[in-house]
């Protein structure tokens, strides 16, 4: 028996994530205190400025939507006992696919086009996770490794494609052409970027929560994730649970990518996913893989991001303070502070 926890089974932390939050904020505060000439105003810029102006707040909420979708899928995979490390590539594929399909059919009615774009994004994300899911199901291959590798290959290939054959030569950005205006996410609260995306994320969180807590399959999936041998022994359909969560996670990541592409830019920009897959993992872990906490956790991350941006603009402090805070959250998200829960079983 090794005392190490199974790398594929992060602890379900629930409120256990509070120390992680506290550590992250404390680190940010200490750095600001040390580096700033005017700590008070820097504190205000970091912690409070996101809430002082409605436009900034609306942007913050919008910013949380896509990572929230990613985190929901990641949490679902965590619940099934696995680790989806391919969020980055799945989101990239989803965003690019959504743009390509909408460029191909430029004259649909707006809502239909948007729906189509999202579906295409979800399908592309799912397709990116499909090889891993299939080999997991049929060969028991390691999801952690295969999702990451496939994702990296997809990222590099899309980097090339967007810089090459798909590129809009008239633009300075390395990006595809822009989709028709009708397909842009409608803004609810201009000039902010707030769209219905956060509602979509909340709805997804609600559905996932209902599924996990009140459906038979959800319960079975949970139990399978905790103890596959048990699930197999009592007769659950373990092969399905080795397959579907990963596919759904891929679809959610793809949808998140579509959101990124159709939201701010209306086009697929090279490198547009910018670490959303990693953020999804952190958020899922911070939320203890509980869909009810994923949106709040995503908002917390968006706050860190906006806060660090503000502090760098307003107080000249490095915006990387937000990255450090996020890293600390991730470092401590699976830690246990209340002593070991159970002594190691005798043997």
């Amino acid at each position: 028996m090794t005392p190490r926890p199974d790398p594929r089974k992060p602890a379900f932390s629930g409120l256990g994530a509070l120390p992680a939050l506290a550590a992250a904020l404390a680190a940010a505060a200490i750095y600001i205190l040390a580096a700033s000439e005017d700590p008070a105003s820097a504190f205000r810029a970091f912690f409070l400025s996101p809430f002082t102006r409605p436009v900034v707040l609306a942007n913050l909420v919008e910013l949380a939507a896509a990572p929230c979708l990613c985190a929901l899928g990641t949490a679902l995979v965590f619940r099934s006992g696995d680790f989806n490390l391919g969020g980055e590539g799945q989101a990239y594929a989803g965003g690019t696919a959504a743009v390509l399909i909408l460029l191909a059919v430029p004259s649909l009615p707006g809502p239909a086009g948007l729906a189509g774009g999202f579906l295409a994004g979800a399908a592309a994300g799912a397709a990116t996770s499909l090889p891993s899911a299939l080999s997991r199901r049929t060969r028991g291959a390691d999801v952690l490794l295969s999702t990451f590798l496939v994702s990296q290959a997809v990222v590099l290939a899309l980097d090339w494609a967007i810089a090459g054959p798909l590129r809009d030569p008239s633009s300075n950005l390395i990006a595809t052409p822009v989709v028709s205006d009708a397909y842009r996410l409608p803004r609810l609260f201009p000039p902010s970027g707030l769209s219905f995306a956060p509602l979509l994320a909340a709805a997804a969180a609600f559905c996932l929560d209902r599924f996990l807590r009140t459906s038979r399959r959800g319960l079975e999936l949970n139990l399978y994730g905790r103890n596959p041998a048990f699930a197999a022994s009592v007769g659950f359909r373990v092969r399905a649970y080795a397959f579907w969560p990963l596919l759904v996670s891929g679809a959610l990541n793809g949808a998140a990518g579509a959101l990124l592409a159709l939201g701010s830019n209306g086009r697929a920009v090279r490198g547009m996913t910018g670490g959303i897959g990693w953020n999804g993992i952190s958020i899922a872990l911070l939320a203890g893989n509980d869909p009810r906490w994923v949106l709040p956790a995503a908002l917390f991350f968006a706050w860190l991001e906006v806060g660090s941006r503000q502090v760098s603009i307003l107080a000249g402090i490095s915006a990387d303070v937000g990255t450090v805070a996020k890293a600390l959250v991730l470092l401590l998200a699976t830690a246990r502070f209340l002593g070991s829960r159970r002594r190691e079983a005798r043997k």
């Binding site: 190490r4 926890p5 790398p7 594929r8 089974k9 992060p10 602890a11 750095y31 580096a35 680790f83 952690l144 990693w278 993992i281 952190s282 872990l285 490095s318 915006a319 990387d320 303070v321 937000g322 990255t323 450090v324 805070a325 996020k326 890293a327 600390l328 959250v329 991730l330 470092l331 401590l332 998200a333 699976t334 830690a335 246990r336 502070f337 070991s340």
Partner: peptide, 27 residues
């Protein structure tokens, strides 16, 4: 140490170190 002392998931802890380095080096 995060894995050993705090029983953090060693894999997640290492991912976090990646991110931590990126932030710390930037600063």
């Amino acid at each position: 140490a995060a894995a050993d002392r705090l029983s953090a998931n060693p894999f997640v802890a290492a991912l976090a170190v990646n991110l931590l380095v990126a932030g710390a080096v930037g600063i």
